[in-house]
C-alpha cells in the first residue's frame, strides 16, 4: 500500500491556520501564519485527524495524497 502524505497548495492557501490547530503533530505555522507541512508519510493513527484538517480547510488548499 502506498503512503499518504499531506500537501498544501500554496496558491490557494490563504493562511487561515485552521489546519495547524487540527493537526499540530504535522503542521506548524510560519512567521506569517502559513502552514509548514511535514512531508513524511502519515502514520495510520493520525489519518483521521489529517482527514479532518483537510475537510476543515475553507479553500480546499490542503490535500492528502498517495505517494
Amino acid at each position: 500500500m502506498s503512503d499518504l502524505v499531506l500537501r498544501v497548495n500554496p496558491i490557494l492557501c490563504d493562511g487561515h491556520g485552521l489546519c495547524a490547530e487540527l493537526l499540530p503533530e504535522r503542521i506548524e505555522l510560519d512567521e506569517w501564519g502559513y502552514p509548514i507541512v511535514d512531508a513524511a508519510a502519515m502514520p495510520r493513527s493520525l489519518e483521521p485527524h489529517a482527514r479532518r484538517a483537510v475537510a476543515a480547510c475553507p479553500v480546499l488548499a490542503l490535500r492528502l495524497e498517495r505517494r
Partner: peptide
C-alpha cells in the same frame, strides 16, 4: 504574488 511564503517571506 500568489503564495504566502513567497510574498511575505521574500519581503521579510
Amino acid at each position: 504574488g500568489q503564495c504566502g511564503p513567497c510574498v511575505h517571506g521574500l519581503a521579510a
